[in-house]
């Protein structure tokens, strides 16, 4: 009894440790599954204090990494929750409508909007480039993504005037959640666009991440990611927008094609390196004749012919 008593404090986790573990589960939830994971972790923890602490820290991070898009209450479209548009813990800029959305992270909902202040928006000069690119992207995204959201942020030099460098960031986020079919997935691309006035070049670097989770009587996940870079010349807002959108379209289409190739190589090449569909002999294994196999091995061993 006394031994058990002395072991107790050692095995007991501190509240801090429990919170960290709970946060780890929440942050590693697959796309669209954090609410389910939260429910599970709540039942495992059986400690509302720890649970509340963990969710309040994990949800904002998760929502930003997953770039979830939320409908704004005044029917003005969706706002994407990203670190690029983050003004404070629960306010996110929607550059397209020049509005600021108030976000309830744990409910994953937009509760209110207000017009953005002048300080929160880029200069007139930048806005021309941003807005032109946004219009081109909307066209592309609506063609390529059945349910995609996109946004263009100014991430550097927001108050720039002609003659200086600035940076825009394009976010494309598409997610599909169908829990009743045990299937969730996301596509996220982030394109960094560096407008360099000194060299008159525009440099693009993109990161694409794709994931899917299928978990009916099992747990299978796809993780794919790709990075690419490209360059074009600094032109008028409209011409820059057109060539940037075309480059994004080109790279993403190429990448989609390579995903299709990866999948079509699976059955006969890639998967075969793990396990063949049929034995090398191309006939089912001779289980009825295993005595022969054992004997053969014995003989090989005795004659020293083993591998």
């Amino acid at each position: 009894m006394s031994e058990e008593d002395s072991q107790e404090p050692e095995s007991e986790l501190t509240e801090e440790q429990k919170t960290e573990i709970a946060k780890w589960f929440l942050l590693n939830s697959p796309s669209g599954e954090i609410q389910y994971v939260a429910k599970d972790i709540r039942s495992v923890l059986m400690d509302e204090n720890v649970y509340n602490m963990a969710v309040s820290e994990a949800f904002p991070l998760y929502n930003k990494t997953h770039m979830i898009s939320l409908e704004m209450p005044n029917r003005s479209g969706a706002v994407i929750v990203t670190s690029f548009g983050e003004l404070n813990d629960n306010e996110y800029l929607d550059p397209r409508t020049a509005q600021v959305a108030k976000v309830n992270h744990i409910k994953q909902a937009c509760t209110d909007v207000r017009p953005a202040t002048d300080e929160e928006l880029p200069s007139f000069y930048i806005e021309q480039f941003r807005c032109a690119l946004d219009s081109e992207l909307i066209k592309y995204v609506s063609e390529a993504y059945p349910k995609g959201a996109c946004s263009v942020y100014c991430t550097n030099g927001k108050d720039a005037e002609p003659g200086s460098n600035f940076e825009l960031t394009v976010v494309i986020s598409a997610a599909r959640h169908s829990p009743q079919n045990f299937c969730n997935g996301f596509w996220r691309s982030v394109w960094n666009i560096d407008f360099k006035d000194d060299t008159q070049l525009v440099e693009l670097s993109g990161k694409i991440q794709v994931g899917a989770h299928y978990f009916e009587e099992g747990n299978v996940q796809l993780d794919a990611n790709h990075e690419c870079i490209d360059t074009t010349i600094f032109q008028s807002p409209e011409d820059s927008a057109l060539s940037i959108a075309n480059m994004i379209r080109h790279h993403e289409t190429e990448y989609m094609a390579s995903l299709e190739v990866s999948y079509s190589n699976l059955p006969d090449t890639t998967f075969k390196d793990l396990r063949r569909k049929l034995p090398v002999t191309r006939t089912l294994f001779p289980w009825n004749n295993t005595l022969q196999i054992s004997l053969n091995r014995e003989i090989t061993k005795e004659l020293g012919l083993g591998k």
Binding site: N219, V220, D223, A224, H226, S258, S262
Partner: peptide, 8 residues
């Protein structure tokens, strides 16, 4: 093509 992983 980048990295492509299936696991489960």
């Amino acid at each position: 093509k980048g990295e492509f992983t299936l696991s489960g």
